[in-house]
């Protein structure tokens, strides 16, 4: 059985006038150590999926299993499960009243994890993203790209096994985004985390993922599933000039394009 699995998961949001299916009959599997991206037009429920996995939202129906643990729809998942997960937001979402270092270490405080080894790990991570000199600065004193890097390492300070990212680099300029992609790949190779990556940017998804789920909106459903295979070539920016890379991108692009057309009709 897969490491993470969603079986016939539905999520309904009720508004005063109507009921909206954010997710309809979602079946997904994620293997341990895999890098999987979710792409699709806005409103397809990509963000909702990881919010279900992170137990921020509860599904209307369906089964979710993570590492052998079956989610219960009426109870929140236990602490030892949530500690396996790291969650990265669309925006850095740093607390302005904490220093950069305090922000990075905030999850440890909530999880009551203390000790010199974590202090050391925080410094290592800060150093890794090139911000070791800014530990005592405040978020308002650093740039947006730097803030998002901090957001990313905050999500992994407690050494999670599952790393869920909700369009983490959407607000960054193209250069910074590429750098962050490469940094993320390095981190992934080093830590062997299972990564679930949500993005609007198809190149980004193809460059990094082993598998991509393409989703449609209204209601959010899985349209297709692609395995991205560069026959063992290392993932780096050289791939972008590869013919196969372009093929994957056009494939997905046309898939999403038809989805958009359907919607207009």
């Amino acid at each position: 059985m897969a490491y993470i699995s969603l079986k016939s998961v539905n999520k309904k949001f009720s508004t005063r006038r109507s009921e909206i299916y954010a997710l309809k009959n979602i079946n997904m599997d994620f293997n341990k150590g895999e890098f999987v991206s979710l792409v699709g037009p806005s409103g397809c429920g990509k963000s909702t999926i990881i919010r279900l996995l992170d137990d921020i939202l509860k599904p209307t129906s369906g089964e979710i299993t993570v590492d052998g643990f079956a989610y219960n729809n009426s109870e929140s998942i236990p602490k030892n499960m949530i500690k396996k997960m790291g969650f990265i937001f669309q925006v850095p979402n740093l607390y302005p009243w904490l220093t950069i270092r305090e922000n990075v270490m905030l999850p440890l405080k909530v999880y009551k994890m203390k000790g010199p080894e974590y202090d050391k790990y925080a410094e290592e991570l800060l150093d890794y993203v090139g911000l070791a000199a800014y530990g005592d600065s405040y978020p308002s004193e650093i740039s947006g790209g730097m803030q998002q890097r901090i957001g990313v390492i905050r999500g992994m300070i407690h050494k999670p096994e599952i790393f869920m990212m909700d369009e983490p680099f959407g607000a960054l300029d193209e250069d910074t985004r590429e750098n962050m992609n490469l940094e993320l790949l390095e981190i992934w190779k080093k830590t062997h985390m299972t990564v679930i990556f949500i993005t609007h940017n198809i190149e980004e998804a193809v460059l990094m993922s082993q598998r991509i789920y393409v989703m449609s909106s209204h209601p959010g459903m899985v349209k297709s599933e692609l395995t991205i295979d560069f026959s063992g070539r290392e993932r780096n920016l050289d791939l972008i000039s590869d013919r196969k890379f372009a093929e994957y991108c056009t494939d997905i692009e046309s898939m999403i394009g038809t989805l958009r057309l359907d919607e207009i009709k």
């Binding site: 602490k79 969650f87 937001f89 925006v91 979402n93 607390y95 405080k109 909530v110």
Partner: peptide, 27 residues
């Protein structure tokens, strides 16, 4: 709400949410 969502994603209990987030936001 984004600050609160961070606390929720960490499964902080009510008291922790208050201590690390709400009181500072309300200051």
């Amino acid at each position: 709400p984004a600050h609160i969502e961070l606390m929720q994603s960490l499964k902080a209990d009510k008291f922790q949410q208050f201590k690390y987030c709400l009181i500072m936001d309300a200051l």
